[in-house]
């Protein structure tokens, strides 16, 4: 038997927050639906307690991209097509642009949203690693509260964020980076179109006189959830760039994944492949 849900579509933010306040534990938010609808069709157990599907896709307030006080604000319901077509994003956040334009197919990018990608929190969510290297924060609203927190802090475990049932993710806030960052984004899938990441990573690098000034790593589809590697980043401060350094970095990243995930069916493929790819990317950056 297919389960029945009541469906609520909102076009303004305030009423949806009120609704969520009243029905928080029985509601599930839908935006583009490219994850939610698939899960519902599968009969996923996370919908067992859900009675209401709350559609926020048509809330215009959640679909803006703008800049104010050196902060770029991307509405949670912006589609990947809107983001990758946005000139400001393209020129200031190239890693994000590279990541989102490789998600799914044009049809999927036309409907799926960046907020949905975060809230669903799949290991292979392609937009999260780039947001992490850009030090993204998220704005979260409930009917009686507003909070702005680093994106990293709300990522708990696969398919589980720290956004409360009565809350809605409304915006992603990205501090404007200076133009001195070198960058790369790598996504590897089994095919070139409509492809789920087997692994992905985003890297930002600033160097001076062949020494690392700042480096940021975020990985997707390698840990249970996308992740920044801040300890490693700190260790690399002021290190001299060389092939041997990059070999060591690649090995350390691989070792960290092994330590955290153990040996899985894909390990014998992923771990050697990642090290060579990462090494090549780092060599190309410098």
């Amino acid at each position: 038997m297919k389960k029945q849900y009541s469906f609520h579509r909102f076009t303004k933010l305030k009423p949806v927050l009120e609704f969520m306040n009243k029905n928080s534990t029985q509601s599930r938010v839908i935006a583009g639906g490219t994850d939610v609808l698939v899960d519902i069709r599968k009969g996923d157990s996370k919908f067992d307690a859900v009675k209401h599907i709350v559609d926020i896709h048509e809330i215009k307030e959640l679909r803006n991209i703008g800049v104010k006080d050196n902060i770029c604000r991307i509405g949670a319901c912006c589609t990947f097509t809107e983001i990758s077509n946005n000139e400001f994003v393209r020129s200031n956040f190239p890693v994000l642009k590279m990541a989102v334009e490789k998600i799914g197919s044009p049809q999927i990018r036309n409907i799926s949203t960046i907020g949905g990608n975060i809230c669903n929190l799949a290991a292979c969510a392609d937009s999260i690693a780039p947001l992490l290297v850009y030090d993204a924060k998220v704005r979260i609203l409930s009917d009686n509260n507003e909070r702005i927190v680093p994106l990293e802090n709300i990522l708990i475990k696969p398919y589980k964020t720290e956004i409360h049932p009565d809350e809605i993710l409304t915006e992603i806030l990205l501090p404007l980076p200076d133009k001195n960052w070198k960058y790369c984004f790598q996504k590897l899938g089994r095919r070139s179109g409509v492809s789920i990441s087997r692994l992905s990573y985003a890297i930002l690098l600033k160097s001076k006189n062949n020494k690392i000034e700042d480096i940021r790593f975020a990985l997707g589809a390698l840990f249970p959830i996308p992740k920044r590697l801040k300890v490693l980043e700190h260790e690399l401060f002021q290190q001299t760039i060389s092939p041997d350094l990059w070999k060591g970095v690649s090995r350390k990243v691989a070792q960290k994944i092994l330590d955290e995930t153990g040996v899985r069916w894909s390990t014998f493929y992923k771990i050697p492949a990642l090290q060579q790819l990462l090494f090549s990317s780092l060599m190309n950056l410098t």
Binding site: R251, A254, L258, V263, F268, I271, P272, Q276, F279
Partner: peptide, 17 residues
């Protein structure tokens, strides 16, 4: 094919992938 998971120095290729 190599069987070690963590590559040793000479298993990294510096050429084009």
């Amino acid at each position: 094919h190599s069987v070690n998971l963590i590559l040793n120095d000479n298993q990294f290729s510096t050429g084009l992938n």
